[in-house]
Amino acid sequence: MSWHRKCIAVLQKDMRLEFRTRYAFGALIMFAVTTLVAISFSLAGGIVDVDIAASLLWIIFFFSAMTGVSRAFVQEEETGSAIALKMAADSGPVFLGKFLFNAALLVGVAVLVVPLYLVMFNLSVALIGGFVATVFLGVVGLAAAGTILSALAAQSALKGSLLTVLSLPILLPLLIGATNATRTALSGGNINSMMTDLSMLIFYNGSVLAASLLLFEYVWCE
């Protein structure tokens, strides 16, 4: 099989597993919705400042991504299928397949959670295109860094709980950029500052993906 077909095959395998159990998607959605409801409930209908609302969105995304993304490799280690996967495909296709799966998972969660977030906090989006682009790029970045770090964490004794510790410092540039861009999109600030944040997100995603593709070989092959 050629390189990209192996990558698609890994993606299809994970998709099929997910459709059978809906384990990761269900956990992710419930985590995000629970957090959203808890925050909204504790605010008791008070008006939320745009600054706080923007950072809340990315805190919710960060922690729910951590619960869902870690699944991809922990599950391979738990069921013992990691060795078979190592024999079937090189490290590159495995990483890309897992990354695409995680990205699809998080985009799916975002599609459901973001409208709920806008309704619950009574927000209106000033720059819709910019907002959609921010959420998409931010979520893809979460998936990219989360994929390689969950592969690291899956080999340790702590597994899932280690992922959050490892991810926060690496993802902080992304979270800062995404929060700034979201704030601009919600309040309708100037488009130029938003373009700076968006291009930083693109640059961040690109460099994390490139570094991960190079480094994943060392994580995956013992």
Binding site: A145, I148, S156, I176, Y204, V208, A211, Y218
Partner: peptide
Amino acid sequence: ARLSAVYATLAFVTVPFL
């Protein structure tokens, strides 16, 4: 050694942003 080296390298790629 292997996994911590990967983490240190990955951090080195992303941290220059900050």
